[in-house]
Design a protein around this nucleic acid. Structure first.
Length: 118
RNA sequence: GCAGAGGAGCAGACGUUCGCCGGAUGGAAACAUCUGGAGGAAAGUCCGGGCUCCACAGGGCACGGUGGUGGGUAACGCCCACCGUCCGCGAGGAUCGGGAAAGUGCAACAGAAAGCAAACCGCCGAACGGCAGUUUCGACUGCGCGUGGUAAGGGUGAAACGGUGCGGUAAGAGCGCACCAGCAGUCCGGGUGACCGGCUGGCUGGGUAAACCCCAUCGGGAGCAAGGCCAAGCAGACGGAACGGUUGCCUCGGUAACCUCGAACCGGUCCGGUUCGCAACACCGUCGGGUAGGCUGCUAGAGACGCAGAGCAAUCGGCGUCCCAGAGAAAUGAACGUCCUCGACAAAACCCGGCUUAUCGUUCCUCUGCCAAC
RNA sequence: GGGCCCAUGGCUCAGUUGGUUAGAGCGUUCGGUUCACAUCCGAAAGGUCACAGGUUCGAGUCCUGUUGGGCCCA
């Protein structure tokens, strides 16, 4: 059996403004105390991620830390999530969110939205 | 030992595992191996320069910046040294530090008066007049009433026309003298200079230029989302000024050059320059439409480190070694373990030189004052 | 990344060449009018002029730095 790889390459990231706009307009949305998640089927077999952290979260150092934690959470969960989705994560403005919080919220919210997508 | 002054540096460390961005090598590819991977402020965008585009970036005026002197530099509003002023016992620190006898303006309230001299409460009675008294009929004494003298003292104010002392006087006053402060001089000495020291003179002419201004000096505008190339895609519309002249050539109605005029541009304006000009397809302006993809600019540089040298220093030239982020929804994270003093402020986005602001701690060097011991 | 602008009562704005005590409208509160409400009339409260330092006798105003907010570009 092939060993599962936990990678996060450029092809797994959302890189165009158009992609983000389509997900905001036509995707499903769910949130909790830590995250706000948008999900849309992309018609392929791979799952892609985009992260949006606004200036209101703080300085560049704080924003980078949040972005890296969210990307790390996705990297570890990628084989437990359904394939063929485009996901956009927007974190909430709170200072006490850890990697474990993000992982838990991401798994729960994506599962819920996948059920809604059918 | 205590208190303090100045300067330089570091910015948790190590190991294992899973990942991220760039490069090299191998491979058809997937990928594998090796290797590099944020800061002292990367920040604020406050200055300066490189680079790119605006054809060139020329002169005057306007506008804006700078403002002791000498040096450093690619350049600066930065740095170094020195001078002046202020603060500190001292080591040292602070300093938008040109001009107020070129001109204009401003100073509320208070005060008599806010810039040119004047006089509210005062002080005085020398001079002229008045009144009263005395009189030897020359005048003398008193009053402070008028004309006056004065700026000592009081009071107002942020600021009131040098300060202190002695002399002087009716009272006073640079009126005279001594010292201090300030000013002037074609003076003398030192210094590249800012300026310093001295001599002589007469005793005056406040503040504000981060008010206008004057003087000196500097500055063309925009910015890597600049700019270049490729691909894809759309839709254009409106507006703008001479039918001028001379000369040459020649296929004889065209063409070229020059002059004049006009328009546009040179992102303030004039000169000056460039382009276009008989007719719309060019040029310029205004409005509108399309794209939001790729490559490049993009990191070898006012570069880093070391060595000796010049210079008080900032800095400079010389030699040697090294290559040290280059993304584009944007790379450094996570888990575990060990140790310590338990880790601040904070992350490149074209690149440099500065300034300013934020910052837990900690190390080193030089120096000053006081106390104690020798 | 780069360029530029703004900050004055709860809200929207004035504030001259620095000068005594910073104004206006709306809103708020109180009183009057009405059986009651609205309208109307009268009165009052409410400001560290975003923050810090400097120049000046004196700063909302001039200079420097900080903070917060907004606009533009390919």
């Amino acid at each position: 059996m092939e060993r599962r790889r936990y990678k996060f390459t450029r092809e797994q990231r959302l890189r165009k403004s158009l992609d983000f706009e389509q997900i905001y307009d036509r995707g499903l949305r769910a949130g909790d105390g830590h995250l706000l998640v948008f999900v849309l089927r992309n018609g392929t077999s791979s799952t892609r991620l985009g992260v949006s952290v606004s200036r209101k979260h703080g300085s560049a150092v704080v924003r980078n830390l949040k972005r890296r934690r969210l990307k790390e959470a996705f990297r570890r969960l990628q084989h437990d999530l359904p394939s063929g989705l485009d996901i956009v994560i927007v974190p909430r403005q709170r200072l006490d969110s850890e990697l474990a919080d993000y992982s838990r919220s991401l798994a729960k919210l994506v599962k819920k939205l996948t059920a809604e997508l059918g």
